[in-house]
Every structure is written in structure tokens, then in C-alpha cells.
Design a protein around this nucleic acid. Structure first.
Lengths: 399, 399
DNA sequence: CGTCTATGTCCAACTAGTGAACTCTAAGCT
DNA sequence: AGCTTAGAGTTCACTAGTTGGACATAGACG
């Protein structure tokens, strides 16, 4: 970046302001931009011209009946972003444009025991296929977001030791993927990306403080605080799965006893149903059976809900978010699990903290993480990458 | 505010940049300002002149041995800020200047049953006395920070229902005090202000994410997240006192059972020692006895520590702060309480979250809250109030 | 068909930051 | 002591960038 505080930085800030206004509204006329950004019409005129020349923005001559308003919108082909999400059973990829539209999305199963090399090979292929399908040039890739199912040090990019994918510990997924795709890759864990996805496109729209709780083989939370993912100084915020609910409860894989996870995560819950319902049950199956009325599954899901509720109550007392979004397979259970959660929260959280809390199931299902990865790519490059593109395109070429 | 995005807003931002740099460093030469702000020497020269003319800043000709550097520092008499802290047993007032120096500070006992009117009368008197003592003109008051020992809705300024001061429920302390002092008053609860105080002047210096835990008649926490007090959307973040440690534990005044508070707050802990140590024991007394070696008191304090540790472990898993500061009388117990806290945290928090956590006693003791109130006044007015003063002073008068 | 009105553009004025040249002062060297 | 050196602060001409106002444009309305 240039010196902050110079005029050019002001200009850049104004460019971003305009782009952001257009993005939020979808499309605006110049006069509307001027009003919503507070810039003068003259300035907007200049900025729009600059953005148009750079290809960031498209100007369509008068769509609606007015006097002669040209509507300005983000040009779809100014660049694309890619979201890649490794789950422990599948791989998901999405391609979106800078106007926050998803152009293509696909998922395929992935073996848990697959080596990281295999995984990345598959990811690379799938990305290539989707890009081809959208017909956009590879050079237009503005950024990639990557989700991994485990703790990752965002600074160094190293996958933590308690990662769920066995063969991946100690690898640096972002570097790996950058090597293959040749673009900057931003990583984060699945819970944080789920939170981001639900915030931008799902049940968290319009809310600035939310917790996304994902119950799968483990339990994790992604925290959004004042509109931004909060990772904490050490990058491990949101470990709701290991808060202690019962000091003399079951032993958890983390070495403690009675962690929230031991009452709620698939690996601990499914065995409860083995004797009655067979051994090859999945969480998804339990949810389906519960919805069909199976009393045992209903009971188990309600118990899980109560325990999650206890954890959410703690979270709520400490952080007082305005929304909690439940993700993972469990969210499919709807009121069967949300009811008990609400009940527990009502009982254990202090009323003033619980008052404005709404608890919703995720609206995106299994897509939350990929879409979050997309959002990560968009937000990490900031609107400024858009603008970098503009500037370099606007700068006369040397050739 | 003027139109954001204009040159004048840029100028204003640069003024703030300079003021902030000077404030952080205490005093700087112009060349140092230029380096630390990234502005050019010429710009700094202009800005310093403007600030000097406005009275915000003082220029002292060469203090240290160099070539000919003039050191720039905030002028002490550009304005003063006042911090007022109502505890449930005392009233504390501090007067500081814009250079973050405390000019005067005093506390006096306050009856718990005092009406709010009495309380504010006393506060007004004490403020007046201190202002006179410092010899500064009343018109120089730039802002007042007010701390109250209970939940307060920062938006509406109304003291919540579970306030510790009985006669104060439903009052609007900030308005009350503004009426008497004639200046804007910013309120917050004691835990948040303690956090702010310790962050600016105490054990939290240099850290951007910390939790301040105050154990008194209740237990509350103030959270600082990325350098800012975090209150949560509903204003009740930090209620660590009512997270559930034991679902079948003692009944808490909040209606739940086994809240952290029931194991740690004075009102629940002191009765344990009544039969052995008499009825008129205070927390302060217990701490003193424990330091002198009394085994019963030591045991009680260690138990309290262990329970606080459990709460901190939860906090740590969720938020992963880099520092926890213990405030209130209990902090005086030093290692007697910190040891067990650390032990509990080590046991119950996940290692990766606990790794970079340091747990310290507050460095400011009972002063944390007033100083926090001072800091609140400073931060709420922002450096911009400083600048407003500058600008109006720099603008030619009409008379 | 003329008038009205909101849109977008152009231009001259103005604001504010910057690099370069310049001055000033004390320290260090001869 | 005198010369050199180097960092500090100032001045000045220049440039980037925003703004208000004048102006052109084109549909709507009578």
C-alpha cells in the first residue's frame, strides 16, 4: 500500500466506497451513487469512468424509465473467486464472481483416508472443470478461499495436530493449493467459513454478531463479532466443543471429561443407538429417522439439543450474540433439536443476555462452508483487489 | 461530520493520526512523527503548526541532546477529562488531562443505601473539589466517564434491574450527572471500565484481546476484543458470573443453580467462614488472613480460584484471549488465587487455546474502574473532540 | 412542440499533500 | 577554533484529487 494519508489513498478509498455501494445495491445510477456515498456528482462521474475503463464495472444505458439514467453494475466477468471446501467425507468447490453471484458449484465424495496429495489433485481437477463450465478465463481468478476441517494456524497456514483428516497433519494446505492454481489462497477452518457463509448468504444476513455452531464428528463454533470473523490472538477462538459441562462426564478425545463434544458429537452419540438401531448409522440417518417419528432417535436428538443449549447459554452469557446459527447435519432436524436448545438456553442463560437472541438452523446446509470460502476470498482480497485490477488495467501497458 | 471522502476529511484524519502518534509516544519530534505516521515532513510541519495554534499541542525547544529537534507533546491544559466511579461501598473520582496523565484522584466511602440523589450530590461535590485542586478552568472539561456497579443499557443509559445499588434501579445516571456538570457523560459498568483501565494503564498494556474478571459481591467480566471494549449487541456481554459450572449446585440469585458466582462471589463465600472466623468478615479480611497463613482462608481462596479457573477455561476456549486480568479485592491474594486459577485453566481449557494465555493480577487495584472511566471519556470523545477544539480555536472568531 | 427536470459531463477553483531545495544548529573531526 | 557533517524543520513550486457551478442531454408532461 502507498502511504496512508496521501491524496491517492483518499482516491482509492473513494473507489472502494463506490464499488461497495454498487455491490450492496446490485446496480445504481451515478446520481444514486453520489447520494449514497456522499461524493459529489463530478467525482462519481470520474470514478465511474475509471472503473469502467478498468473493466470492474459495466454501464448499461437506461434500464428503467427515467430521464437518461445509466445504471452502473459490477461487471460479472471482471474476475472470479473460487471456494474450495474439504470436508472429511467430501470435497466441494464453488465459483463465483465479484458481484457475489455463485456461477457454478459441485461436490464429490472424498475418502477420509485419502492422502493430501490425492485430495489436492481432486480439488485441482474439480476447480478446472468448473472454471471451464463457466467459460471464464483462468487468468481472471482473483482469489481462492479454502476450508479445512480442523484447527489451522491462519498465520503460518499449518494444519494443527488435532486435525480430523489423518494424513494431513502438518501440511500447509494454502501453499499446496497455491502451487497448483497459481493464485493466492486464503485458508480457514470449516466452522469459521460456515459462519461467514451463513452471514453473507444464509441465516445470518443483516446481523453483525453471530455464532455458527457446527455439529459433526466434532463440535466447533465460528464467531462473527461486529461483522468480522473473530479468530482470537492464537487463532483458536470458538472451541465450544471443549467447554466442560460435567467434570465427571465421559472422557473426551481432548483428554478432559464431560466436554460438550462428548454429549453431542456424532462419534459419541451414534454408539448410543448401536444396540437398538444397528452399527452403520450416520448422523444424517438419525435425523431422518427422528423426523419419521422414531422415538429413540428423537430422544437422542433432544438430549443433544439440551447439551448444545447449555453450551450456547455459556456462549450467550459471555458474548451475547444476537444470533446463533446451527449448522451440520443436525440442523436438518429442525425444531426437534432447536426446541431443546432454546429450552436449555432459556434455563441457563441470564435472561437479559438471552432476550434478543434468535436461534436458527443454517439456511445453506452443507453449502455453508464452500460459500464461506467464496466469501473469504472476496473479503480477503477486499474491494481493493478489484481496484488493483482496475488500476493495472487502466495503466497503459508496456508492450 | 463533513462529507466523508473529501479532502477536508483526509486532513482531519491526518490531524488525528498525528495526535494519536503523539499521545501514544508521550512526546515526539516532528521527524519522528513523520516516520511513525508515514506522512511527509512538510505535512507534519503544517499539521503541527495548526495544532500548536489551536492549543492542542505544545512545542518545547529541544529537550534532549540532538541537533535541533523540537519535541511535540500534547498540551496539558488543552482540556481535562473526569472519571467517576460508583462502587457499592465507595465513590471515586479522578481528573486527568488529554495527555493521559492523572492530575488528581480521590475516593470517599459511600453508603450502600444512599439514594441516587445523595450519591450524585456527593459526586458533584467531589468533582468540584478536585477540579479546584488542579486549578483548571471548569470550561475545559472535555468529557466525563461514569462507572456504575451493575448492568446498564449503554444505548438508553438506564440502569438494569439487577443493579447492586438498590435505590438506583431505572435511573439514568449519565443524564443525572450531565444535568449537574453540564458536560457529556458516558456510562459503562464497572467490569468494562476495569478492563479499559487495566488495558490502558495496568496489566493489560500492549495487549489487544483481554478479559478483566472482577470478583466482588458478584462476578463480572469486561472483554476487550481487538483493542475495543466488547459489549455485545444487547450490551450484556461478559456475564461470566452466571455461566453454569454445576447444574445441581447452590441456588444463585439469578434463579439458576451452580453459577460461577455461587462458588466465588463474596456473598456466597464469606458465609463458609462465619462459624470459624466470625460474622463480620470481608473479602479483604479473608485475603489478609490468607496471606498471613490462615489455613481456612487459604483453602477457601484456593477453591474460589479453582472455580474461577473453570470459568476462565470456558472463556478461553470460546474467545482465546491473550491475557486475563483478575481484579477486585481477590486480586490482592496474588499467587494464592492465581495458582489455582492457572491450574484449573491448564486442566480444563484446550491446550492450544491456553498456550499463549497469561493470567495476571490487576495492577491498579481499586483504581482500575475510575481510571477506566477516565479512559472511556478520552476514547469516547475520540481524538476528534481534541480536534474540534483545535478547529474552533483556529477559526477566526466573530466578535 | 416547448418546457421542465433530473442526469451526467466539463471546467475552473480550491484543498491538501509531496519532493526538493534550503536553512539552521549542534556534534565531531582536524 | 574552524570546517565538515548530518539530521531537523521550513518554504515553495507542483501535483493529485474533489467540488460547485455551468452546460449539454433526453425523456415526460402539458
Amino acid at each position: 500500500m502507498e502511504t496512508p494519508g496521501s491524496q491517492s489513498s483518499l482516491h482509492r478509498a473513494n473507489l472502494e466506497r463506490v464499488v461497495r455501494a454498487v455491490r450492496l445495491a446490485g446496480s445504481l445510477t451515478q446520481a444514486e451513487i453520489a447520494r449514497s456515498t456522499g461524493l459529489s456528482a463530478a467525482t462519481v462521474s470520474n470514478i465511474v469512468r475509471e472503473l469502467k475503463d478498468g473493466g470492474t464495472v459495466e454501464v448499461t444505458p437506461t434500464s428503467a424509465g427515467g430521464r437518461r439514467a445509466r445504471s452502473v453494475s459490477l461487471s460479472g466477468d471482471a474476475g472470479i473467486v473460487i471456494g474450495v471446501d474439504f470436508g472429511h467425507t467430501h470435497l466441494r468447490v464453488a465459483v463465483g464472481n465479484l458481484a457475489h453471484q455463485v456461477l457454478a458449484e459441485e461436490s464429490e465424495p472424498l475418502d477420509v483416508d485419502a492422502s493430501s496429495t490425492q485430495g489436492f489433485d481432486r480439488a485441482e481437477q474439480l476447480v478446472s472443470r468448473l472454471i471451464e463450465a463457466t467459460g471464464v478465463d483462468r487468468s481472471k481468478i482473483a482469489g481462492v478461499g479454502l476450508g479445512v476441517p480442523g484447527p489451522i494456524d491462519v498465520e503460518s497456514g499449518t494444519l494443527g495436530s488435532s486435525a480430523i483428516l489423518p494424513g494431513w497433519i502438518g501440511t500447509k494446505p494454502a501453499e499446496e493449493l497455491r502451487g497448483r492454481l497459481g493464485v493466492t489462497v486464503h485458508v480457514d477452518n470449516d466452522a469459521n467459513l460456515g459462519a461467514l457463509g451463513e452471514m453473507v448468504w444464509g441465516s445470518g444476513r443483516g446481523v453483525r454478531d453471530l455464532a455458527y455452531i457446527k455439529v459433526a464428528s466434532g463440535v466447533g463454533a465460528g464467531l462473527v463479532i461486529e461483522g468480522k470473523i473473530y479468530r482470537g490472538p492464537g487463532g483458536t477462538a470458538g472451541e465450544i466443543g471443549h467447554i466442560t459441562l460435567d467434570e465427571s462426564g465421559p472422557v473426551c478425545r481432548c483428554g478432559n471429561r464431560g466436554c460438550l463434544e462428548t454429549f453431542t458429537a456424532a462419534r459419541y452419540v451414534l454408539p448410543l443407538l448401536q444396540s437398538s438401531h444397528g452399527t452403520d448409522l450416520t448422523m444424517e440417518g438419525v435425523v431422518r429417522l427422528a423426523r419419521d417419528g422414531d422415538p429413540g432417535c428423537r430422544r437422542v436428538i433432544a438430549d443433544v439439543g439440551r447439551h448444545i443449549g447449555s453450551g450456547v447459554a455459556n456462549l450467550c452469557n459471555l458474548l451475547n450474540p444476537s444470533r446463533v446459527v446451527l449448522g451440520g447435519d443436525l440442523a436438518e432436524a429442525g425444531e426437534l433439536v432447536l426446541g431443546p436448545i432454546r429450552e436449555s438456553v432459556g434455563r441457563y442463560a441470564i435472561p437479559s443476555a438471552a432476550r434478543q437472541l434468535t436461534i436458527l438452523p443454517g439456511a445453506l446446509g452443507g453449502r455453508a462452508e464452500v460459500l464461506g470460502a467464496l466469501a473469504l476470498a472476496l473479503s480477503e482480497m477486499g474491494d481493493s483487489t478489484l481496484l488493483d485490477g482496475t488500476l493495472s488495467a487502466a495503466t497503459p501497458a508496456f508492450t
